[in-house]
Design a binder for these strands. Structure first.
Length: 478
RNA sequence: GGCCCCAUCGUCUAACGGUUAGGACACUACCCUUUCAAGGUAGCGAUACGGGUUCGAAUCCCGUUGGGGUCACCA
């Protein structure tokens, strides 16, 4: 049996980290088995639909480098992959369920439902689902009222007794008491299906073999099995993955202020690092390695190494990982081009060419920035003469005014400010003045960089070049 | 509240009945050093609790507690 997995994001807002997480695991598992990974947009909630969201979700996947075998941008014969375009299909199966007696029409208005629910809550009922008022309407009455134009929804007729066993691939059998189950709405008043129906119909029609989704779906899986059963279809392998949590221990969510994938991207997190980080949430490489690629994951993935406790998202560790990719994993040329691309996208790189000089700056800065954004925040003095002087740098700059002219003189005498030329000169000068090396270096650094945090002095001088260094010294000498 | 899931350092995790409970992030100290980093070394720090089973339990079973999820004409 060939594996088919999917993600079914809902285009309601910002591209969610949870979607990226699911996309990773679904695509890795499919690839590992030479199967197919598909993306289906679940947009059947017209009220929450967000027109830009759809494209942004697909863009996020592109950015991450997760390539679906089928999606709204890559349709095949199993499509369309936009769920609302399949509404006719869903309706047809809802009617089939209705005809076979596995479902029924319910004519309650939203107001009635609200009222009864509130009453149930007030009574502290343990069962808070639909009270099944219309479950026992005769077929004649149901047909007649529908024909008369009364609006209705189609609900699942869940069994009232017995048990439904869901076999979760990670947790084993999970037993639900049917009496706890609800007569869920399958087809809404507006003719669109709910998730429960739509997902099951589409998964089946698209040949999905393994439903890998977040743990929040576990409790509605018995409903899904009942739908499948009513339609005479076989259930897929259910795999409910552990939670992604945010600092408070709650479910990670954009609504709580947790960053979206776009937020990470805009801060200068690399897709490789994000994916690597997500991969170590709930899963580990067999040898315990922390730095691994999606390809490594495809090679070594197994459900046995998934831990079930939820994982708290730690931005600090993500940043560390990102820094690791910058300084150790990605080649310099790649880092330089990512940095420049980021700068262009966010207005930092105006008039700055992606040339050899730029790459040298990146190389010098390599161990000094963890996100692409940090690079730009720390390097103004490499790319212009109007760099700011920090408060901390102002002090050594003032204190060093008498040594600066001597420094200028010594540097001006050099043919070029190469490392091997400047180092002995600067050290000799410090000694001659009876000063600690730092007392000479810090004023120099403050003058040419405007900050006390910079790459090594000699590399800095060499890269900046004699002309610029001298001009800066002239300007900074009172 | 009913039901469901989960439980090792603050965080991510290793251990698949026998380890001084290991690693990583963070934190602290030291080393390196012209600053800031990076890097290196060391330290701090966990099996939620209570019962069993077993020669032996982080590991298996039960209970308690705690956390999370779910109970929408949202997904």
């Amino acid at each position: 049996m060939s594996v088919v997995t999917r993600i079914a994001p809902s285009p309601t807002g910002d591209p969610h980290v949870g979607t990226a997480y699911q996309a990773l695991f679904n695509s890795v598992f499919a690839r590992q088995h030479g199967g197919k990974f598909i993306v289906r947009l679940e947009d059947t909630d017209r009220s929450r639909y967000n027109a830009t969201s759809e494209g942004r979700i697909l863009d996020m996947l592109d950015w991450l480098g997760i390539v679906p075998d089928a999606s709204p941008r890559n349709e095949d014969d199993k499509g369309p992959y936009i769920q609302s375009q399949r509404a006719g299909l869903h309706r047809q199966y809802a009617e089939q369920l209705l005809a076979s007696g596995a479902a029924y029409r319910a004519f309650d208005t939203t107001e009635e439902l609200d009222e009864r629910r509130k009453a149930a809550e007030a009574r502290k009922d343990s069962y808070l689902g639909y009270d099944r008022r219309d479950r026992h309407l005769s077929a004649e009455e149901s047909d007649w009222r529908a024909a008369a134009g009364e609006e209705f929804v189609i609900r699942l007729k869940a069994p009232l007794e017995g048990k439904t066993v869901v076999h979760d691939h990670l947790r084993g059998d999970v037993v639900f008491d049917n009496a706890e189950l609800d007569d869920k709405v399958l087809l809404k008043r507006d003719g669109f299906p709910t998730y429960h129906l739509a997902a099951m119909v589409d998964d089946h029609l698209m040949g999905v073999t393994h439903v890998i989704r977040a743990e929040e779906w576990l409790t509605s899986t018995p409903i899904h099995q009942l739908i499948l059963q009513g339609l005479g279809w076989q259930a897929p392998v259910w795999i409910h993955t552990p939670w992604l949590l945010s600092a408070g221990g709650k479910k990670y969510s954009k609504r709580r202020g947790d960053p979206s994938v776009e937020d990470f991207r805009n801060k200068g997190i690399l897709p490789e690092a994000l994916l690597n980080y997500l991969g170590m949430m709930g899963w580990t490489m067999p040898n315990g390695e922390e730095i691994f690629s999606v390809d490594d994951m495809v090679q070594h993935f197994s459900w046995e190494r998934v831990s079930l406790g939820g994982s708290t998202f730690d931005v600090q560790k993500l940043k560390w990982l990102n820094g690791k990719y910058i300084r150790e994993v990605l080649p310099l040329a790649t880092v330089a081009s990512r940095v420049h691309g980021f700068g262009t996208e966010h207005g930092y790189a105006q008039g700055i060419a992606e040339d050899k000089y730029f790459t040298q700056v990146v190389e010098l800065m390599l161990p000094r920035f963890e996100t692409l954004q940090e690079f730009w925040e720390k390097t103004a003095y490499f790319f212009g003469e109007d760099y700011p002087v920090t408060d901390k740098a102002a002090k050594p700059l003032a204190e060093g005014q008498d040594v600066l002219p001597k420094l200028r003189e010594a540097l001006a005498a050099l043919p070029a400010l190469t490392h091997d030329q400047t180092e002995p000169v600067l050290k000799a000068l410090a000694e001659a003045q009876g000063l600690k090396v730092g007392k000479v270096m810090q004023p120099l650094r403050a003058a040419v960089a405007g900050t006390l945090e910079s790459p090594g002095m000699f590399e800095l001088l060499e890269l900046l070049g004699k002309e610029r260094v001298l001009a800066r010294l002239d300007r900074m000498m009172k």
